[in-house]
Design a protein around this nucleic acid. Structure first.
Length: 445
RNA sequence: GUGGGUGUAGCUCAGCUGGUUAGAGCGCCGGAUUGUGGUUCCGGAGGUCGCCGGUUCAAACCCGGUCAUUCACCCCA
């Protein structure tokens, strides 16, 4: 058979793994410094944990795991006869692959509530799976890097998480815009426009704004048969960048006012000018996931044409689904794959992430090869990553191999080196050579 | 789930309106070079033209199907 991997999945070469680890390590370091602790959850969850949390669309994108054993014995016979795939699936699958890290985290918090100190701050860097049709920047298996805090409603955390975004992207060298809005402001817009009952319709339309423009949003709202004066009112408010002006428009909406005050509080925590990236209030930011209730974030790369590379927000009742009501949480997520793609596109990876060995030993004949093996052992013991070509082959062949591996230095060992103990260390880039003993070589690295 | 593009050597692609043994560049292997690579030169290996069927005297090329892949929409990281 022809080897292949499932669609939407990828193999990673050593170089790619090194680059990805550079991203993960950068994010992890910042998370840890901000007081977040790591947890991990299983790749698969009980299907009941996952279904209904991501909306109708999300449910369709859940990977379901076929039950083991005689699953047909437990299958829903009527559904089978009626060719009702979703119902049949529910009867032959009890588990699914995690779709994001937030819902498993909520489940974790509820299950371990008596062991945790609240507010509980955790980070999690693990793959998630979605049965989406793959396309640019979209895969069926991808890593998310999440930081969330549960058990506090303090807006300090919104500011803290915004700072984390700012710091991580500054370290990675990716210029971004961090957009912030508040679901309560969106609710205020709906209220002030007199369409509070159509909040979700409105939000979905607004979410598309940067793709289809204000005209497109108008058409979208019209097609959802919204009154034209309401649409006009929504448009006016969406184009209001000033919190003060919005406040006057929200005169009759306490929710909207509350949203504005929350944003103002977050900005006051952030202070004026100590951020590396722009953080901007954007009333048109909506975000699809419905569990957000307060501030919402989205991060876009400034120099790459790409969907958002991070997002998050506050959710007042996420653990309510699992029987623990009134616990407020707020979190952010980094889309590692898209950050990778953006950094690759913009050539932002530093040379040093390439990893690999520092030195390759090259021996001229069999006795030298034995001697070289001892040298390699000593260098390794001293903490230097190195390797020895497996046999005393032609020098050209060994040098070619060194080039192919991108090794910065080689050590050449022949009779004279062996007898003098002074090895020839060659810089593969400059071609310079010097005679050094083992100890001197160790000191060079 | 909906709509479009593309499948020819390991990679990137040529291959005219169907017409003999399907090409290039790069890469790979060997040699020129008995202790020094990246340059150059010489030689070599490697392809059921994604798969199945149809049209035709004749198909890499036209038609249908199928699979894969990619882009966009929906949705999203």
């Amino acid at each position: 058979m022809k080897p292949s991997i499932p669609k939407g999945t990828r193999d990673f070469s050593p170089e790619e793994v090194n680059k990805r680890n550079f991203i993960f390590d950068t994010i992890r370091e910042v998370f840890v410094r901000y007081g977040y602790q790591p947890i991990e959850t299983p790749a698969m969850e009980a299907l009941a944990t996952l279904t209904g949390k991501y909306g109708e669309e999300g449910d369709k994108l859940l990977f379901k795991i076929l039950s083991n054993g005689d699953f047909l014995a437990d299958a829903n016979k009527e559904a089978l006869a009626a060719m009702d795939s979703p119902k049949v699936a529910a009867s032959i699958s009890k588990r699914g692959l995690r779709y994001d890290l937030t819902v498993p985290f909520a489940r974790y918090v509820v299950m371990h509530q008596n062991e945790l100190a609240f507010p509980f701050k955790r980070y999690q860097i693990q793959p998630v799976w979605r049965a989406d049709r793959p396309q640019k920047g979209r895969y069926q298996e991808f890593f998310q890097c999440d930081a969330d805090v549960v058990g506090s409603g303090s807006l300090m955390y919104e500011a803290e998480l915004a700072r984390i975004y700012d710091e991580v992207f500054a370290k990675l060298g990716v210029r971004v815009t961090i957009k912030i809005n508040n679901r309560k402001i969106l609710a205020g817009i709906a209220e002030a426009a007199g369409v509070a009952d159509r909040f979700m319709d409105m939000t979905i339309a607004i979410d598309k704004l940067d793709k289809i423009g204000i005209e497109g949003v108008r058409r979208e709202l019209e097609s959802r048969s919204m009154a034209s004066e309401a649409i006009a009112a929504i448009e006016t408010m969406l184009q209001t960048q000033s919190l003060e002006k919005l406040r006057t428009l929200f005169a009759g909406s306490p929710t909207g006012i509350a949203g504005i005050e929350e944003i103002e509080t977050v900005f006051s925590y952030l202070g004026a000018d100590s951020l590396s990236n722009e953080i901007a209030f954007d009333p048109t930011l909506a975000r699809g996931l419905s569990y957000y209730t307060g501030c919402i974030f989205e991060v876009k790369a400034k120099d790459a044409q790409m969907g958002s590379i991070g997002g998050g927000g506050r959710y007042d009742n996420l653990t309510g689904n699992f029987g623990l009501p009134n616990v407020s949480g707020v979190g952010i997520s980094f889309g590692a794959e898209r950050i990778f793609d953006a950094m690759e596109e913009l050539n932002l990876f530093p040379e040093k992430v390439l990893g690999g060995i520092q030195v390759l030993f090259i021996a001229f004949d069999a006795p030298c090869h034995r001697y070289a093996f001892e040298c390699v052992t000593r260098l390794r013991a001293a903490g230097v990553a190195c390797d020895l070509y497996p046999e005393p082959a032609k020098i050209k062949k060994q040098m070619d191999y060194a080039n192919k591996r991108g090794v910065p230095f080689v050590v050449l060992i022949g009779e004279s080196e062996m007898s003098s103990g002074k090895l020839t260390l060659k810089n593969m880039q400059s071609g310079e050579q010097e005679q050094l003993d083992i100890q001197e070589i160790v000191e060079k690295f």
